[in-house]
Amino acid sequence: MDEKVILIVDDEADVIAYLSAVLDNYDCRIYSADNAEDGFRKAAELKPDLICLDIMMPKESGISLYTKLRSTEKLREIPVIIISGVEQAHEFDFFKFVEDRSVPPPEYYFEKPINVDEFCGVVDRLAFNDLEHKAKGDS
C-alpha cells in the first residue's frame, strides 16, 4: 500500500504541531498549510488521503475551502475532518455554515480540544481502513 498523505489546514501553529505529533504515530506523510488558499493549492497538488481542517481562519474560512474541495471534481472524494473551536449546542450542524444543501457534510467533526483516542479512531477509519471510501475515491 502507498504511504498515506494527510494535510492539516489550520492558522494556529500549535494545532498543526499537536496534530502532527499525534499523526506521527502513523505511517504517513504529513503536510500543513496555515491558510485556506495554501491549503487548496496543497490539496490539489498532493491529493491527500485525509484533510484535517479548521473553520475560523483569517482571510478565507475553512468552510469556504471545504465547499471549494467538494465542488472540485478531483478533490471532492477526499475525506475531511473539521476540527474547530466554534461552539456547537449539541452536535455539529454543518448547514448552519453552508446554505447550499447540495454540498455534502464533512466525514467527521471535532470540537477543540480533541479527544486523542477518538481522533485516532476516526483517522484509522477514514485514512487507513475505510476501504469502501477509498474504493469510491478510486472510481
Binding site: 494556529e12 500549535d14 494545532v15 504541531a17 499537536y18 496534530l19 505529533a21 473551536g85 470540537e111 477543540k112 480540544p113 480533541i114
Partner: peptide, 10 residues
C-alpha cells in the same frame, strides 16, 4: 478552546 487545544498539544 484554542488555548486548551494548544495546552493539550503541549
Amino acid at each position: 478552546k484554542n488555548i486548551l487545544m494548544g495546552l493539550e498539544g503541549g
